[in-house]
Structures are given as structure tokens and as C-alpha cells.
Amino acid sequence: MARAALSAYDMPRGTRIELLGSGLTMIFRVVTTDARYALRVHRRGYRTTANTRAELAYLRDLGTALAGSGVLLPKPVPARTGDLLVEVSDDQHADLITWVEGEVRRPGDGLDLTAVRQLGRTLALMHNAAQDITPADGLPRWDADAMFTTAASPFRPVLNIGEILSPADRADFDDIGDRTRAIFAELGDQFGVIHCDYILGNIHLSRVGNRWQVGVIDFGDCGIGCYVYDVCPLLGNLAGYPAGPYNPDYPRLRDALLDGYRSTRPFPAEWERHLPVLMAARNANHCLLTAGLDVSPTPREDAAWRMDLARISLELPV
């Protein structure tokens, strides 16, 4: 299927292809004599062609807006027809994007405070650019309904949230949802296109002289959401999870991230009180992801783990 998709593009003879991973999309590395690309074959029933076309159009426009900023983004590669995606079977499609160089860094493994500040600046640059881009129809919405109700979730769960959560976890899920809804109402003018999965695993760092260069990948969940919420997936990484226990350096890392963000875009101090709840919302929202078709063989166990992380988030220092 990947080779059939790749045949729709102008690739030179001798092009090599290898599977890198299979999750919500199957990712293949495509290597020619002078370039590398990522070929994405999308899971059936998860994203429509309209979703993916809107994502790729936004990624193209964001790349144009950030040209010269030092931020590296994948660039969509048009097929021979000029379309940004190709349909490879019924209800399944693929696209080709350029490769983003760099390595994933984590606290204790090369991610210093200077790099964290650069990550904050990069996210602020993307948010500034988003305000001047009119997105195409098809991007998902990440409002409170989308994050906390089965019917509206862009994750398209096949299990109802009540089927995978214990009564105690469901009560906490609903409480976090209510608190998130109130925060979003308070931050009503802070909505636009967000990455929605700005985590260390989707950030490629490389050294250019004495500076860090940031590359950002995996815009598969980008959509209309709250800019303040977009900070929270990365804050969860800096707090120590899901990879390990609480990181005692979290307050310094959080401050460095926000300092970097504020170097480019306002982030009033009063917004910081919302961060623990929105970090909890990130984990609670992922219960609906684990309820999706063939996403997890153990959705109830995964949802319980996510709710444990949500409760930990609520206890984090502000």
C-alpha cells in the first residue's frame, strides 16, 4: 500500500522505503540519493480526506509564515496531480512530507533550560502565525465538548466513556471537564489553530552553532483550540510523565518554557493558575483516544492510567 501511494509522486529510481512505526498512522521513511521524506498512510476511519487536506494546507501556510524564523516544519509534497494526498483504497489515504532533521531530547538527556526556552518561543511563534492564517474547512475543534464527550470527540471513539471508566474516575473526568469548560469560557479570545500534541516526542532539536534549532512534526491533531491549552502537553513531559515519576526540576523547566513563550507572545501571570487543570484535561481527554477503534488492546487500563496522571496534574505547583 505504501509503495502504491509513493508511485503517485515523482520519486527517482532507487528510492528506498522503510516502516518506522504504526499507530494512528503508518509512518514510512522514504530515502532518495539527495533527500528524505516521511510517507504517512492514515488509519481507516480516523481522519477523513477533508481533515488531512486541511491539516496539510495549514502546515503549508504555517511554513510560509515562519520562513526565516529558524523553526523547521515538514513541507507537504504534492502528488503528480497537484493534490496534497493520494487515496490508496476505500476510506484510506496517504500523504508525503519532507523530513525534519534533529533528535528528541528529554530532561536529563540533553534538554537544558536554554533548549526549553527555545521550545516556548517556538510555540509562541506558531500561535502568532496562526492568528493570520485562515484555516481550510476540515480541521477538528478542540473545545470542551470535543474533549469530554464521546459524540463530539475528533478521536472518534467507538466505546462510550462510561464503558471504560470506573465510577470514581468518571466523576473526576466530569469534574475536570466542567473546570476546563469554565477556563475556556474565561479565555474566550485565546482560540485559534493549535498543534494539540506539542510534546517532546514531536520536537526535533539540533545544534546550529551555539543555538538550538527546533523542528516540529506530527500536526495530525492540529485544530481549533485554546492557545493556553497547547502549552500543557509539553508541560506534562517536563513534569516527568508519562516516562517516569515527578521531576523535581519541573518548576524551573516550567518557568523556562513560559519565559521563552513570553519572549515572543504575551502569557499573563494570571493564566498560570489554569495550567494544572488544563494539564489534567490533556490526560482526561486521552481517555477518549484510548476508546478508539484498535487504538489499545486494554482501553480500560489505559484510561485508568490517564486518570491517575490527571489527578497528579491537579496537584502540581502553580
Rank of each mutant, 00 (worst) to 15 (best):
V214F: 04
V216C: 11
V216E: 08
I217K: 11
I217D: 07
D218R: 07
D218L: 10
F219L: 07
F219Y: 09
C222T: 15
I224Y: 13
I224P: 00
I224Q: 13
G225F: 04
C226H: 13
C226E: 15
C226P: 05
C226Y: 09
Y227M: 05
Y227D: 00
Y229W: 15
D230M: 04
D230Q: 04
D230Y: 02
V231K: 04
V231S: 14
C232R: 06
C232N: 11
P233E: 05
L234G: 00
L234K: 01
L234V: 02
L235S: 08
L235G: 08
G236T: 03
G236Q: 01
L238G: 04
A239L: 02
G240K: 02
G240R: 02
Y241G: 08
Y241N: 08
P242G: 09
A243K: 13
A243Q: 13
A243W: 15
G244L: 02
P245C: 07
P245M: 06
Y246Q: 07
Y246L: 14
N247C: 09
N247A: 10
P248I: 04
D249W: 02
Y250I: 00
Y250G: 00
P251I: 05
L253G: 06
R254K: 14
R254W: 02
D255M: 04
L257W: 01
L258T: 04
L258N: 03
L258P: 03
G260C: 06
Y261H: 02
Y261S: 00
T264M: 15
T264G: 07
R265F: 07
F267E: 05
F267R: 01
F267A: 03
P268R: 08
P268C: 07
A269G: 06
A269H: 13
A269L: 12
E270T: 12
W271K: 04
E272L: 14
E272G: 01
H274W: 15
H274E: 07
L275C: 05
P276I: 09
V277E: 08
L278T: 00
M279Q: 15
A281R: 01
R282A: 05
N283A: 12
N283K: 10
A284K: 07
N285H: 12
H286P: 00
C287I: 08
C287H: 11
L288Y: 13
L289D: 03
L289Y: 13
L289N: 06
L289V: 12
T290E: 12
A291I: 10
A291Q: 10
G292W: 00
L293P: 06
L293R: 14
L293H: 14
D294C: 08
D294W: 11
D294G: 10
S296T: 13
S296H: 11
P297V: 14
P297S: 15
T298E: 11
T298Q: 15
T298N: 15
P299C: 09
P299W: 07
R300T: 10
